[in-house]
Design a protein around this nucleic acid. Structure first.
Length: 286
DNA sequence: CCCGCAGCCTGCGGGC
DNA sequence: TGCCCGCAGGCTGCGG
């Protein structure tokens, strides 16, 4: 569930909790999809935090004179920050806990265990298999129409599937791809290589807009997403199509030829779209 | 090579 | 009430 805007919101909370602090101790409990390294304590205990950052849906916490922690929240991962030195009760499914020098605990809670907590060699983070082939983050400078047409121009996959591929764009998930395609007026079943230049340009323009709006609203909470302080997001109120099958399309109110938002399943995931604003083929092709 | 899809895992909600 | 089934989804790895 956490996509780029949710991860960015969590990162903000993490940055304020971690700034200038030192890790006193670490505890790893159960196995995540990628096992937490056995030597976590040996490599992380006593290390000062250098910086926390994000690439796509990955969080990186660089330690001074030490490795970089790589966190992915999978589908159900949460970061839980607890201040104070009181006796600490880890939550159910809390796989890793860091204790900082001011007593604050940073817990990674992930019921479905699709996430990861790994250590990367400092300075060589991008060489790790999980990050090496990652596409450009849409909030970076070099994310533009040229980049997108380069990545999409030879892909026969539907544009919906192509945008979910983290090697194309890093950070998008099902919710935001639906919202982005809706705002760009592109049908999710269109093949990526069939998009025209204007459509690619719309896609490149609309993508960071939607993500920034979502970050401004604190992300989307559907079931269980909360930020590092335990606060839910509000962007779900602003979803125009995601989860709104059968509802009227907000951008063609009362339009007789618009039957409202439809849902279809593409590679096992729900896509939501407006058939009038996002026609299967553009008029020139028909 | 490139695409589609099963599988991983748990919690929740709908239906009976 | 309680059980069961299906669904949710990010990412990998396999099969076509």
């Amino acid at each position: 569930m956490p996509e780029l805007p949710e991860v960015e919101t969590i990162l903000n909370g993490l940055q304020s909790a971690l700034a200038g602090r030192r890790i006193i101790s670490t505890q790893a409990r159960r196995g995540l999809r990628w096992p937490v390294p056995d030597d976590l304590s040996i490599r992380a205990d006593g290390k000062k935090i250098r910086a926390a950052s994000r690439i796509g849906k990955y969080i990186l916490i660089a330690l001074m004179r030490g490795p970089t922690i790589l966190i992915h929240l999978g589908m159900s991962g949460r970061i839980r920050i607890t201040a104070g030195r009181a006796r600490y009760q880890p939550q159910k499914h809390e796989h890793v806990t860091l204790t900082l020098d001011n007593g604050t605990r940073i817990g990674l809670v992930d019921p479905r265990r699709f996430g990861c907590f790994l250590l990367l060699e400092s300075g060589r983070e991008r060489e790790h298999p999980l990050l090496r082939a990652l596409g450009t983050d849409p909030l970076e400078q070099d994310f533009d129409a040229r980049y997108l047409s380069d990545k999409l121009g030879r892909k026969r996959a539907p544009i919906k599937t192509a945008l979910l591929d983290q090697h194309v764009v890093a950070g998008l998930g099902n919710i935001y791809v639906c919202e982005i395609l809706y705002r760009a007026h592109i049908n999710p079943e269109r093949l990526a290589l069939s998009l025209h230049q204007e459509e690619i340009e719309r896609l490149a323009a609309v993508t960071p807009d939607v993500l920034r709006e979502a970050i401004g609203a604190g992300g989307s909470t559907l079931r269980d997403y909360v930020d590092a302080q335990g606060k839910p997001g509000a962007f779900q109120e602003l979803h125009r199509v995601y989860g709104r099958e059968g509802e009227p399309c907000p951008d063609c109110p009362g339009y007789p030829a618009c039957a409202g938002i439809r849902r279809l399943v593409q590679s096992g995931r729900s896509s939501y779209y407006c058939p009038r604003l996002q026609p299967p083929l553009s008029l020139e092709d028909a």
